[in-house]
Design a protein around this nucleic acid. Structure first.
Lengths: 188, 188
DNA sequence: CAGCGGACTGACCGATCGGACAGTATTGTC
DNA sequence: GACAATACTGTCCGATCGGTCAGTCCGCTG
């Protein structure tokens, strides 16, 4: 391990605060306090607030690259189903980072990993839209991505009941997203 | 008109920045600059940053109250369809405020209209879940609300093509949300 | 023209921000 | 125990934050 566990904990805490309170709304002091460190120590491990964010989202960017690369553009339905499953698992694993990309990506383009993630998401959306171009498919993709990410991150805001990481949630989300990412429903 | 048009423009600009850059990430100075005023002038119209946010989201809170009050808990399918239409129109009209409620609501509970909106959304979610309680329906509601709001607000982040306020978008969103808010699909 | 009230501003305040830096603990190695 | 290297901290800095306040500008009314 070249990265000590304390640095990983710091990244986890930082990502949590950046995703929920916003990059501008999060101070190095509050991150340090949550980690049981001083602000100086945080800046010892990461040379700046931006660098801390970059390190915190880097794993999510790498995994997103792998996910998008494995998208079966014109695969058979089975392949597609398996991809949707990987998609949901990715959201589970990196929900905070995805939430951050979607809600703050535009204002954090100057941070390299964020810009990369945005470009990947854009390529992803275009690949989806290429299958059956049209406004509705684009909308469905956006609703699925944003809705799933939000359900996993911020649902506790207005839903009294916490959505734990149970298989129930995963299954429900899988069916919901799957129906959204399949082609437009024939009936209307 | 008891409210001068300049005040309305100020609310619109402020809401735009609060929703996209976050409350903590938006300064009174940047709002003032976008409005062509000085910071002092902004604080002349609204006694604080919080008061400006409260005034900016108040119309959306009022409309949300009316929307939720009109929810036909056990109405016939036609009634339900008409409600989904009102729901989409509400999202169109108040997308920025909804986006703000969902992504920053938890940290802005001390601002009265935000707390009210959160309570309304919670009541709404519970009413939906009461029809057919279960994890999946809750997920579907969350996905529909967050996904639709996001599609209308921040899609420009990763989708190269801007989603204009066309009837196409409204129709597509209507069908997407309608399929999500109907009861769980029979087949699994 | 006097003057009055609302719109607006620049100067200023204390607090907090991100960050720089010198110095202190702590740890592992011989 | 000597001695680095690493982890960590307190202090300080300039910039910016939200907010106060005294005063200016301007259109309206008498």
């Amino acid at each position: 391990m070249t990265v000590p566990s304390s640095a990983l904990a710091l990244q986890r805490i930082a990502l949590e605060q950046f995703a929920t309170a916003g990059f501008g709304g999060t101070s190095l002091g509050s991150i340090a306090q949550a980690a049981g460190l001083s602000k100086s120590s945080v800046l010892y491990h990461y040379e700046s607030k931006e660098a801390l964010l970059a390190a915190a989202v880097q794993p999510a960017v790498d995994a997103l690259g792998a996910l998008v690369a494995g998208y079966p553009g014109d695969g058979n339905p089975d392949e597609h189903d398996r991809f949707v499953e990987r998609f949901i698992d990715y959201l589970f694993a990196h929900r905070l980072a995805v939430h951050l990309f979607m809600n703050q990506g535009r204002f954090l383009q100057h941070i390299e990993p964020v810009a990369t993630a945005d470009a990947l998401l854009q390529r992803f959306a275009e690949a989806i839209a290429d299958r059956i171009p049209g406004v509705e498919d684009r909308i469905r993709f956006g609703v699925a991505l944003a809705g799933a990410a939000y359900s996993l991150v911020a649902a506790a805001n207005w839903s009294s009941e916490e959505l734990a990481d149970t298989d129930d949630v995963r299954d429900a989300l899988l069916r919901t997203v799957s129906s959204l990412l399949s082609s437009s429903q024939p009936a209307r």
